[in-house]
């Protein structure tokens, strides 16, 4: 397989969030609907995020999130930035460096980085802490990390990732990395005439890159922070806590939880993670 890439052209993104829902649908990820705890309330049933950005952040159940940010420009004109945020699929993934268990984090020949969930175990969440963008999210109940999987199963079947397939304006594109780079560069040249700040983010060293019209902060996209890895190492050393223990944290209560409602979600995701071409429950909610 030739190396692939996802190219997100934000000049075309309309913030419809079809990609966000398609991701949940394909991977059978549950919806996050945090309760507001207003007794008997119909209208204030759920917590309010304060914007169109729902849920508020990426999580172990939300691997692709459209971020919304608005700003009144210096010319008085309104701007509303939106773009999907997810794993950048690094060339040399720092998360892989951070993972103590071999074979959990795989840099696939397609360029995608995916986590083998059934091998992933109870640890010190170093993948999340090593990530320069803070992308992997930890499921506290089953103590495993999750993030965008590059729709590795689809890609190996010659299909495009679910988000790409669904994007109405064609803002999310997928193909051979060289072709995507060419497209991005050509598009950048056009866009730059009206938008001098336009840039490719985070760069072509990644298998998921963006064409942004403005600086990444405008879109609430994190700039790469490679010091996170060092900080995490130092913090681990300071507390002299072992970076990982495998079985020690599997307490009886956790097993009980797995047998209950949470367990269903767990097994579905474990199943999905078994191998790139593995079967997937597409009907989960």
């Amino acid at each position: 397989m030739t190396e692939k890439a996802i190219f997100i052209d934000t000049s075309k993104c309309i913030g419809c969030r079809a990609c966000q829902v398609a991701c949940k649908q394909w991977w059978g990820l549950p919806a996050e609907l945090p309760a507001e705890n207003v007794a008997g309330s119909v209208q204030f049933q759920y917590k309010f995020s304060g914007s169109y950005q729902n849920p508020g952040d990426l999580s172990h159940q939300t691997w692709n999130l459209v971020r919304f940010k608005e700003e009144a420009g210096s010319d008085g004109k309104m701007k509303w930035f939106f773009t999907p945020d997810r794993c950048r699929h690094c060339k040399n993934p720092p998360c892989q460096e951070g993972c103590p268990v071999p074979g959990v984090i795989v840099k696939d020949e397609s360029g995608g980085v995916y986590y083998n969930v059934e091998k992933c175990g109870d640890c010190a969440k170093q993948c999340a802490e090593y990530c320069p963008f803070g992308i992997p999210k930890f499921d506290g109940d089953i103590r495993r990390a999750f993030k965008c999987r590059f729709c590795i199963d689809r890609v190996h079947e010659g299909k495009t990732p679910a988000c790409v397939k669904t994007c109405p304006p064609g803002a999310i594109q997928f193909g051979d990395k060289t072709e995507m780079m060419d497209k991005a560069q050509a598009r950048l040249a056009v866009i730059q005439t009206d938008n001098p700040e336009a840039n490719i983010y985070p760069g072509f060293d990644y298998n998921n890159f963006w064409l942004l019209l403005y600086a990444p902060e405008k879109y609430s996209l994190a700039q790469a922070d490679f010091t996170r890895k060092e900080k995490a190492r130092l913090a681990a050393a300071r507390t002299s806590r072992k970076p990982f223990t495998v079985a020690g944290f599997f307490k009886p209560l956790t097993y009980l939880g797995m047998l209950g409602g949470l367990g269903l979600a767990f097994f579905r995701r474990v199943d999905a993670g078994k191998n790139p071409e593995g079967k997937i429950d597409r009907h989960g909610k």
Binding site: G15, L33, Q45, Y46, Y52, N54
Partner: peptide, 26 residues
């Protein structure tokens, strides 16, 4: 209307993934 819901809502407010993206009246 918003992108995330449909008309009087029956077809979208009954689906958890679409409820998630615009969960509350605002």
């Amino acid at each position: 209307r918003v992108a995330e819901h449909w008309q009087a809502g029956a077809m979208t407010r009954n689906l958890s993934w679409l409820a998630e993206v615009q969960p509350s009246m605002f």
